[in-house]
Design a protein around this nucleic acid. Sequence first.
RNA 1: GCCCGAGUGGCGGAAUUGGUAGACGCAAGGGACUUAAAAUCCCUCGAAUGCAAAUUCGUGCCGGUUCGAGUCCGGCCUCGGGCACCA
Length: 839
Amino acid sequence: MYSELIRLYPTMRSLAYIQELKQGVIIDKILKEGDEMPRYDFASLEKKWRARWKENPIQDASAGKPKYYCLDMFPYPSGTALHVGHWRGYVLTDVLSRHKILQGYHVLHPMGWDAFGLAAENNAIKKKIHPAISVKENIASMKRQLNDMSTIYDWDFEINTTDPAYYKWTQWIFARMFEKGLAYEQEMPLNWCPTCKIVLANEEAVGGVCERCKSPATKKNLRQWMLKITAYGDRLLSGLEGLNWPEKVKKMQSDWIGKSHGAKIDFAVTDSDAKIKAFTTRPDTLCGATFMVLAPEHPLVETLTAPSEKAAVEAYIKQAASRSNVDRMADKEKTGVFIGRYAVNPLTKEAMPIWVADYVLADYGTGAIMCVPGHDTRDFEFATKFGLPILQVIAADPSKTCETLEEAYTGDGVLVNSGEFNGLSVADGKEAIGGYLKKNGLGKITDNYKLRDWVFSRQRYWGEPIPIIHCEDCGPVVVPDKDLPVMLPQVESYLPTDTGESPLALVKEWVNVPCPTCGKPSKRETNTMPQWAGSSWYFLRYPDVNCDNALASPEAIKDWLPVDYYVGGIEHAVLHLLYARFYTKFLFDIGVVDFEEPFKTLFNIGMVNYHGKKMAKGEGHGVSPDDVLPRYGCDALRLYEMFISPPELDCEWDDSGIEGVSRFLNKLWRIVEKDAAGNAPATDELVRLRHRIIHGVTTRLENLALNTVVSTFMEHTNTLQGISQAGGIDRETLEALAILISPFAPHMGEEIWERLGHKDSVFAQTWPSYDPEMLKSDTVEIAMQMNGKLRGNVSIPAKASKDEAIAAAKAALGDKLDGVEIVKEIYVPGRIVNFVVKQ
RNA sequence: GCCCGAGUGGCGGAAUUGGUAGACGCAAGGGACUUAAAAUCCCUCGAAUGCAAAUUCGUGCCGGUUCGAGUCCGGCCUCGGGCACCA
């Protein structure tokens, strides 16, 4: 009995009160009220419809339907549960997918697991459960949650990046890149904790301190696999143009690629054969270059440093290396040392002292710069501090060249103090000096990119093995396709090793294999791939997850790709989206796909904050849908996720906000309970209202103003409630409502549809259309203004002419117009009459 | 420092893109029903003045364009996010 009550009154706050009730009288009363005041019984209806959908999926894949591929970024199962912040994106694509189904599309809306990587491994280490097992557990738990939300993911299209049948193709792509020369080995400095003796990811070395033991991190040079993403820099940039993506994401990507045009100049070094190459975007200022600076890591520092300066330079380099990049960059005061050698300015032939300073970055440009203190702020600071000559070579007004500059002049102007180039504009000077350098073999005109090649190996266990075998004679040899996948061996200990090698290096029977080319005893590559490897191409696999002779069949790729609609958080604006684009372009080049851009439309879903802070997985700062669903139900949570704020903006989760949508659902439910079985006439008022509802919901849904779609439902339901109580709601209006609400509240939609006597699913229906004529009314309320100030409203016929409208307004304003002179009359049809008057 | 966003009631937000600012909802207060609670329904809810009708002010700040500005332009301020000694 009590459980029956609780079922009927799920939002009742004082369940304890019911349980305490002793007298049958009161219980009878509650039940009687229950009859008068029916509530939407979401718990049993969710159960009913979920079972029904399982038996008869809402989508039939009948031929000829246009295809639509809608995708959210797949989660990584590093924790056991998703929070309501995750749901926002999942609900969004679910709503859009259901809407597309109702528009007659065949929709692919799949889900999968990005399950390799550091987060999953660290989670496993923390819980002392092997990652293979903890990942499996986490996936099961998240999958259960997704089903509780009645999302329409088709689990026949599930992906798991840790499945050998999947990572076979992750390795296959790497093998192709290796063959094309896009994968290569290089020594790279990595974060290293000398205490824990492990390689640290940037995330684990924030502030230059090891996350585990808090001791300062250092650098350690290790051989790494690199991917030559820079070879695609230009295409990654130009490909952005045609994309239907938020402008800010395109901007972030193009900034990240950071193409700039300039000159790479060779500077001769006195008493040496060495040349220092330096890139500059300002070759026009070359005559003002008075010194050079090398990054501490620059290879020429060691060979060029004069014996007298060796000690000081070495000390400086050591100090620079011991500090994290972040610290080095945070310096307000510039530091550096002179290495005791000079380069030669190719134009002025003046000697340029060579310095080493850590404000120059080793991995941008050539790691060396020519310094023009007169026209570069940082060079100016450096020159001022160390007393280096500052020369003006650009002047806004050539007649006003001063002896000493107060600060670097970075504006436009003409060249001065530049010999034969004097008088040229900055733009012409770039051209002329660039041309001179090229002609005389002193340098070349070139583009430079901020984009760097991608460090593609990890010294960790939980990732795809890199399919390479190292042979003493043949060098690195790619594993033949027939031997893919290279299985990740099962191991007891998966902790990082103290040599900086991957734990796989300890698995001797796995490491030692014959060379595929010559048969000589060789060793497998023991580094694994980064988590990005699996997530850079997963969207290609979804349409054909069981394909075993290709990453997906050409037919499936042709049918479904590229992705029509892609949803993900702004935090992926650069890395994930750039890597996925790079992979796609590469696969286009080798003929696997016939398009270059993977995602036609991108939508950035905003973050959900809680008490002003980002909801975070591991830290227990979040709201679990598991706590919300039993109390309010799936339909209410779905609606609230959409109602809370415009989907592209960050928002704040409000625990009581969901009350509003829950009340709305109950209100709609009471109307249905009362009118579904009846046959109320479709009055003119109801017909017009129906068209207005369809119009409001449809246009707002298409504009992705989903929060206002929910408002529209609420607003009109309030009106319908009044009409229902006065007479009743006609069948056709209720049917339209059932279809319109079904993408948002699918259980409610189906139940209304069934109560109206239908045997088929609401999702087998067609999205209703509206007649624009029916949106118009006979009369219209317009505002009356005098000099732009509101002076009242008047109702006029909708078809009224300007003269009629003005006459009506004059009559309505009456004596307010006495004694004033009307200078001008303005009429905005259907909106406003404004009299410009003189008192 | 640079590049993006965003500033509207106690709160989340709306405003057909230059045309009645505050839709819809939350929270709050009052009332009806009830022995009571829950649910439901009704009313109030930007500020000031006023018995009232009404009037004035009000979309971060200052100015401008316009019959009319939350919306457009110029100059600031604040808060987010991103990049960061990028040559």
